[in-house]
Amino acid sequence: MAHENHEKAIKQVYIGLGILAVITLIEVGVSLFGKGHIIDGVESNTWVIYIAALLIIGLSLYKAKFIIYEFMHMRYEVPGLIRSVLLPVLLLVWAIIAFFLEGDYWKEKRNKVKVRNEMPAEKLVPQGMLDYEWSKEDLQ
C-alpha cells in the first residue's frame, strides 16, 4: 500500500471515530430531550416521543451501517458478499412486525379480561343467599 494511501486511511479512521462519537452524543441528547430533561414538559406530547424515537432508531441504523461499511470493510467487498450477508437480515423485518403485534395482543388479551370484568352486572343478587324467600325480580 502506498504511503499516502496509508496516511489517508488513518485519517479516515479518525474521522470515523468523530462521526460515531458525534452521532452517539446526538442520540443521547435526543433521547433526553424526548424524556423532557432538556426542556421540561415536552414529554407530555406523545408525538415528541415518537419523533425522538424515530430519530434515534434512524441514527442507530446509520451507526450500524457505518460500522459495517467502514470498520468492517464491507464497502471494499464485492457486491455478492455484501448481498449474501445483508439481505438475510431482511428476513427479520416480518419477524419484528409479527412479534410486536403479538406483544401488543398479549397486552390486549390481559386487558380484555379486566374490561369484561368491569362491565356493569346484569343482576345484583346471587342465588341461594339466605333462607329468606325472595324472587330475583323483587330485588333487581
Binding site: 369484561r116 370484568n117 346484569e122 343478587v125
Partner: peptide, 9 residues
C-alpha cells in the same frame, strides 16, 4: 358467572 352474568376477578 351466576345471575349477574359476570365472572368475578
Amino acid at each position: 358467572p351466576g345471575p349477574d352474568n359476570r365472572l368475578g376477578e
